[in-house]
């Protein structure tokens, strides 16, 4: 598992790509986080914590290790960027009861990570009630300088929207081979975050759900590689 392996690697071994949304500069980190150096702002999206437990509650006994794994990567991201403010863009937990039933050791990990910084939990469709028993503030959306943070991208939204929800992934085709990777998708006006949870899948950028969200001539997929992020233009995906 590539992202989990990164959690054990040194800073110098990990590359990132640079992008600009509504004039604000960010780096896209291969661990799946977006960071704005100028404001000390770190963004992650769709953590889907306790997904395994949520499935187990419905009779599918998926491994109970996904929350640990996701938090381990998140801790490494915190350590790498030491942000002042963390925004988690919704679907923080896989279901409504996830945050209250979370095992104590995982809760402790989050409490430790949040120490000394602000934390905003944006609500998502999986966790519309927000989180319980965790540090930080719950909000439906957040405006910050030229940017708006919400879970689900809004059609016709103002410039500077940063959203999640769709779990974008891009498929690159070259010489009858194809590579599919999660990606940060942006046309410079809007950015959609890849999902951060280790047990979350992706949705192809060509899917109808992305229609109308981007100016495709400027759309760039920052595809997550083994230890770096590769920016590829949407039109260049087909080779």
């Amino acid at each position: 598992m590539a992202r989990l392996a990164l959690a054990g690697m040194g800073d110098e071994e990990i590359g990132a790509s640079v992008t600009t949304v509504a004039g604000v500069e960010f780096v896209c980190d291969p661990m799946g986080a977006l960071y704005c150096e100028a404001d000390g702002l770190l963004v992650v999206s769709d953590l889907h914590l306790e997904k395994g437990a949520a499935f187990a509650r419905r009779g599918q006994l998926l491994p109970p290790y996904d929350t640990h794994a996701t938090l381990k990567i998140l801790a490494r991201v915190m350590d790498r960027y030491r942000p002042k403010l963390v925004v988690s863009l919704g679907d923080n937990f896989h279901d409504r009861v996830g945050s209250s039933l979370m095992p104590a050791d995982c809760r402790t990990l989050i409490v430790e990570m949040a120490r000394g910084r602000d934390w905003i939990w944006i609500t998502g469709n999986h966790d519309p009630d927000g989180v319980s028993g965790l540090p930080g503030t719950v909000a439906e959306s957040m405006a910050f300088s030229a940017l708006t943070f919400r879970h689900e991208p809004a059609k016709g939204a103002e410039k500077g929207e940063i959203a999640g929800h769709l779990h974008p992934a891009a498929t690159l085709r070259r010489r009858e081979k194809s590579v599919r990777r999660p990606c940060f998708a942006t046309d410079g006006d809007r950015l959609i975050m890849p999902s951060f949870g280790v047990m979350t899948g992706g949705l192809d950028l060509a899917h109808v759900a992305f229609r109308g969200l981007f100016d495709q001539t400027r759309l760039i997929a920052h595809m997550i590689g083994k230890d770096r992020v590769y920016p590829v233009s949407y039109r260049g995906l087909k080779g």
């Binding site: 690159l172 760039i220 590689g225």
Partner: peptide, 22 residues
């Protein structure tokens, strides 16, 4: 036959270079 291994990463790097060239 395609050769597995690091081929996917080099494909990505190649596409990213395309973007820089453009």
């Amino acid at each position: 036959e395609s050769v597995a291994g690091n081929a996917s990463e080099s494909l990505l790097a190649e596409a990213a270079e395309d973007l820089i060239r453009d």
